[in-house]
């Protein structure tokens, strides 16, 4: 018995050590970014003085406000569109026969598994074939394209849990098809839709590779702007770190909010 206890402890210790390494890997760059966002030195060779100047610059420095506006407007638009369209597609796919449903899900997962560089190049090729000028529209299309599969993957498990008779029952009870969808299906899959939307938003706001291949020379989001500046061997304004720190704060707030809300719900039930 004693030996067994010792063994469990050893495994637990290993788990804790590896977990700590994981957090070290994940948070080292984050801490560097957060401290750089309040560091007055522009070249960032040393920590000079605490400042909040870069947080003001996020809204004022024209070299970064442009890319930020682009990033956020693409993220909002592509999230709204891909969430709505993806949900409808998911409902459609779910109602297929099992065999064709699986076939559609496999197709759906192609952009998820494909490396970003392949997706980016494929989109670039189709856009140039259709003679689109690379810019806002093509980036928006690209972001919608890679977001939809994630929305579908999030909505699908919820649909599977839904009783298939509910929709028919709503129709029998006099709902129109539109009403049945709005009042019966959507409320039941809303958590999946929200999760899918959140995922689409984060994928879009973070994207570099696909935007890089579909944006052309003029249109830049924060990532492609950083890449362009770094590529020229220049340094960028620390306002970029401040922007990132703000995103970081917002995401933590969202996570806290979701967890607290869940807890409240759990208590009521």
């Amino acid at each position: 018995m004693k030996k067994r206890l010792w063994k469990t402890r050893a495994w637990k210790a290993l788990g804790i050590v590896l977990m700590s390494i994981t957090f070290l890997f994940l948070y080292t760059p984050i801490i560097v970014i957060l401290t750089l966002s309040v560091n007055s030195s522009k070249r960032a060779y040393s920590f000079e003085q605490f400042t909040l100047q870069w947080y003001v610059d996020v809204f004022r420095d024209p070299s970064i406000t442009g890319p930020i506006v682009n990033t956020i407007s693409i993220a909002i638009l592509s999230t709204i569109i891909s969430t709505i369209v993806g949900t409808l597609f998911a409902i459609g796919i779910h109602s297929l026969q099992k065999k064709s449903r699986i076939r559609m899900m496999i197709l759906n997962n192609v952009p998820v598994v494909n490396p970003d560089i392949v997706t980016g190049i494929s989109l670039m090729i189709i856009f140039s074939l259709l003679s689109f000028t690379l810019g806002f529209t093509t980036v928006l299309f690209a972001h919608i394209f890679f977001s939809i599969p994630y929305v579908i993957l999030n909505v699908m498990p919820r649909l599977k849990r839904l009783d298939p008779n509910m929709y028919e029952a709503a129709l029998d009870l006099g709902c129109s098809r539109y009403e049945a969808m709005l009042k019966v299906i959507l409320p039941n899959i809303s958590t999946g839709i929200i999760a899918g939307g959140l995922m689409a938003f984060t994928m879009s706001i973070d994207d570099f590779v696909i935007t890089y291949f579909t944006s052309g020379n003029e249109y830049m989001n924060v990532s492609t702007w950083l890449y362009a500046v770094l590529g020229r061997g220049q340094s960028f304004t620390p306002a970029a770190y401040a922007y990132n720190a703000m995103i970081f704060a917002i995401t933590i707030a969202i996570i806290l909010f979701i967890n607290l809300k869940k807890e409240k719900k759990g208590k009521l039930a």
């Binding site: 984050i30 560097v32 970014i33 973070d206 770094l230 970029a240 770190y241 990132n244 995103i247």
Partner: peptide
């Protein structure tokens, strides 16, 4: 573990460069 993934990939790489 999810939170750091929302930081910009390029900035994380720049941060590693400094490390």
């Amino acid at each position: 573990m999810i939170v750091p993934l929302w930081s910009n990939m390029l900035l994380r790489i720049v941060a590693w460069e400094k490390v």
